[in-house]
């Protein structure tokens, strides 16, 4: 394609238009506007980190990804609660809560609607010891937060061997300015 571009030498003729049209019907139409037509159907979905992978049984993962958030709690909260109480000794007994004061039903009710809550009024963090679920920053140790909420019990002290993966930061420093993510390896 680079050869075509250099032969034409005309920046106005967009390469992508040529290729998208030719793949349809082998007719090259000169058009500056990319083709944005068509219907796009949902395949993957993500709000909070690790929710689908942790709380959804393997047979339901694709279904969870194609259930709209407003219908997720009704469809999946019971599964989440079953999986949470089966997974974590900190939720094995009736009345068990996490450090946010949530019992299994409340905690999984929150998580089953897989959206990320974001504050437009200040600090944005998954959890920083003070602010809870006001966003997700790059440096947030979301896995340890989730492990603590799953395994750490009422005061984050239960199951210490399971409630922190002891990886607390990224392998490259983040940038203070846009686009914030570090350059690739």
């Amino acid at each position: 394609m680079k050869t075509i571009k250099s032969i034409l030498g005309i920046a106005l003729i967009s390469l992508f238009t040529l290729s998208s049209c030719s793949s349809d019907d082998n007719t090259i139409v000169i058009d500056n506007t990319p083709d944005f037509s068509g219907t796009f159907a949902q395949q993957d979905q993500m709000g909070r980190p690790a929710v689908n992978t942790v709380f959804v049984g393997s047979a339901s993962k694709d279904t969870f990804n194609t259930t709209i958030p407003s219908q997720q709690s009704a469809a999946f909260q019971a599964m989440f609660e079953t999986n949470l109480t089966g997974l974590s000794p900190a939720f094995a007994n009736p009345g068990d809560q996490n450090a946010l004061g949530q019992d299994a039903a409340t905690f999984t009710g929150l998580l089953a609607t897989d959206v990320l809550n974001v504050s437009l009024d200040g600090t944005t963090t998954f959890f920083d010891g003070t602010n809870v679920l006001t966003g997700r920053a790059l440096a947030d140790d979301v896995i340890t937060v989730e492990l603590l909420l799953i395994f750490g019990g009422e005061d984050f002290t239960e199951n210490p061997n399971l409630s922190d993966d002891n990886v607390d930061a990224n392998d490259k420093p983040f940038l203070s300015s846009f686009p914030y993510l570090a350059s690739p390896w």
Binding site: F40, Q43, G47, V115, L116, V118
Partner: peptide
């Protein structure tokens, strides 16, 4: 922020969608 609600809390999520 003024383009996405201005103030308060919003709920956000990401999706991938395939051309049919």
């Amino acid at each position: 922020k003024s383009l996405i609600g201005g103030s308060g809390t919003i709920n956000v999520w990401a999706e991938s969608k395939g051309k049919q």
